[in-house]
């Protein structure tokens, strides 16, 4: 059984003009896969990510994580599922500015009700793995973009989630740091069998994944296996318009 199962998922935004954003998404992602979802803006990839991350609801169909149906959850249950099953990595890092690096990493554990000392210990362990031990007591605005993103990755990993969801994780980084971050995600996937889903519009980023899912106009266009990660690195002409 696949870790993530999407069956005919539909989502419509009801506004002045109803917008059918996801038109029957069917998708399975196995445990330990490194997948990228690619699409132009307006293709529905952000909506799909929101649904995958239990940040948004969908209208019809079924979405299961590890067999659990994720539908019509209460805010409380949604929060608990996000906390335990999903680790987020955002384009703009989304660290809390008035908390230090280690406090940011601790925060998901705080919401799990884990004690102070245990929290600090675990957070320091993950910061160390990211090579940020010396930066633990620094505030986000004292760090470079790459360091901030690594803090965010530590925060995503610290709860041992089932899935890492990365939304344009390199969008705010220079190309050299982008390579570092993608290598880090690849390493996590290879060495710890972490399931990673990266949403991006950059082919260079998508190329780091083993499987690239193309989404267009609310439907999945093609799924391509990608074994040659160096096929197209960051550079000219690598952006799908």
């Amino acid at each position: 059984m696949a870790l993530i199962e999407l069956k005919d998922v539909n989502k419509t935004y009801f506004g002045a003009q109803p917008l059918h954003v996801l038109k029957g998404i069917n998708l399975n992602i196995e445990k330990g896969e490194f997948v990228s979802i690619m699409g132009a803006s307006g293709s529905g990839k952000s909506t799909l990510l929101n649904i995958l991350g239990i940040l948004d609801s969908y209208d019809t169909g079924e979405y299961r994580i590890d067999g659990k149906l994720i539908k019509n959850l209460s805010e409380k249950t949604g929060a608990d599922y996000r906390n335990r099953m999903i680790g987020f990595i955002f384009q703009s890092y989304n660290l809390i500015g008035f908390k230090t690096a280690v406090e940011n990493v601790e925060l998901p554990l705080f919401y799990q009700g884990i004690g102070r000392h245990k929290r600090r210990e675990l957070a320091m362990e993950y910061l160390e793995r990211m090579g940020l031990t010396d930066w633990a007591s620094h505030f986000p605005n004292e760090m470079s973009g790459g360091q901030k993103q690594r803090v965010a990755i530590a925060r995503a990993l610290v709860t041992h989630p089932d899935i890492i969801l990365a939304d344009e994780p390199t969008g705010a980084l220079d190309s050299r740091t982008s390579v570092e971050i993608m290598d880090l995600l690849g390493k996590l996937n290879r060495e710890e069998k972490m399931t990673i889903i990266v949403v991006t519009h950059e082919s260079g980023v998508a190329n780091a994944a083993d499987k690239i899912i193309h989404i267009k106009d609310g439907v999945i266009g093609s799924i391509e296996e990608n074994s040659r990660h160096d096929a197209s690195r960051f550079g000219d002409g690598s952006t799908i318009k």
Binding site: E75, A79, R82, N83, R84, N94, I96, L107, Y111, T159
Partner: peptide, 16 residues
């Protein structure tokens, strides 16, 4: 608002 959004995304319940 953004901060609370982050907190909720990483698992804060409404009550907390």
């Amino acid at each position: 608002t953004h901060e609370f959004g982050i907190r909720k995304a990483i698992g804060a319940r409404p009550w907390s």
